[in-house]
């Protein structure tokens, strides 16, 4: 009852008059975060390169992006000028929050950027490599405390996958969720926890300074400039990328989808985009079309399994 009331209220209240802008990008998060920065970088580049004459960014924060996603899907059906930024975190949030709207209700266009996860220990730790950590985990999973981002987020999912790959019951992991990267990093640096897991970028500077030791990364192949093996070569079959993507409204025609895809491709290939990614330290993991669709489906399937394994989704 309450649900429909609010949905109705939102739908009625938010029937925005059409803008004469080329694109309206929704960032389903507060200003300043990763999705917001992605949206605003897109805005900058699309305008600077003349791909679009006018781009606006709208922030609709809440619940891992699911509030924004729900609003986007319900109000913009068939509108070709509406885009939404999203990412891997959304996949988990849709499942843990039992969101009625999923990524199937929008039209994913392309994966834009991505970051691999890194598993670290403080420099003073007696754990020297990933095998040492895995052995500890096998011996007593409770004694290995992992600091990372919010429950059910990318970091948590990665720990669940690692435990599973190591043959440890994923429900037995001792995962300590922190709200921001900074807080988790402080706990790791202060040796409050056994190990830490987060995006590589969070740890890179500390590792270079010798305060942290990177045990492994979740990429397919070794990453240039990072002195750590992949989980795969250490015998744990886990590959995970925390990606960000752009999607269009549901119910658009194939021509409209093709036009948007072409604009996005133009943007990704522009020098301005490459420079922006470089200054922000984001890796270009552009993937579009059917390849992206397949990757997305695989991610959703594996996330759903692991969240059930951890016990976050019934």
């Amino acid at each position: 009852m309450k649900h429909t009331l609010f949905a109705g209220m939102m739908a009625a209240a938010l029937a925005l008059p059409a803008h004469a802008t080329d694109y309206m990008i929704m960032a389903p998060a507060s200003p300043g975060g990763g999705w917001d920065q992605t949206a605003r970088t897109m805005q900058e580049v699309l305008q600077a390169d003349g791909i679009s004459s006018s781009v606006q960014v709208q922030n609709v924060p809440g619940a891992g992006g699911t509030v924004g996603l729900a609003q986007f899907a319900s109000q913009n059906a068939g509108k070709a000028d509406q885009l939404i930024v999203g990412g891997f975190v959304m996949v988990g949030a849709i499942l843990t929050n039992a969101s009625p709207v999923s990524l199937a209700d929008v039209t994913p266009i392309a994966r834009l950027t991505g970051e691999y996860e890194a598993i670290v220990v403080p420099a003073s730790s007696d754990i020297k490599d990933i095998n040492g950590l895995v052995e500890k985990l096998k011996a007593d999973p409770g004694a290995v405390s992992w600091a990372g981002g919010s429950a059910g987020g990318t970091d948590h999912i990665a720990v669940g996958l690692i435990a599973k790959a190591a043959g440890v019951d994923p429900t037995k992991i001792n995962y300590i969720a922190y709200s921001g990267g900074g807080e988790a990093l402080a706990a790791i640096l202060g040796s409050q926890v056994t190990a830490g897991i987060s995006g590589l970028g969070e740890f890179k500077a500390q590792a270079d300074a010798g305060a942290l030791r990177i045990l492994a990364v979740t990429s397919d192949e070794r990453i240039a400039g990072v002195d750590a093996p992949t989980l795969k070569e250490s015998g744990l079959d886990v590959v995970l990328q925390n990606w960000r993507m752009v999607a269009a409204a549901p119910g658009i025609t194939d021509e409209q989808k093709a036009a948007i895809s072409a604009d996005v491709e133009k943007m990704v290939n522009s020098d301005a985009w490459k420079t922006a990614l470089e200054t922000k330290g984001w890796a270009n993991t552009y993937l579009a079309g059917d390849a992206f669709k397949a990757q997305l489906d695989a991610d959703i399937a594996s996330t759903s399994t692991v969240l059930k394994d951890i016990g976050l989704v019934k």
Partner: peptide
């Protein structure tokens, strides 16, 4: 934050 469960949200996203 620690378990991802919703409290007192009554289904309002």
């Amino acid at each position: 934050q620690l378990t991802g469960q919703a409290r007192l949200a009554f289904g309002v996203p």
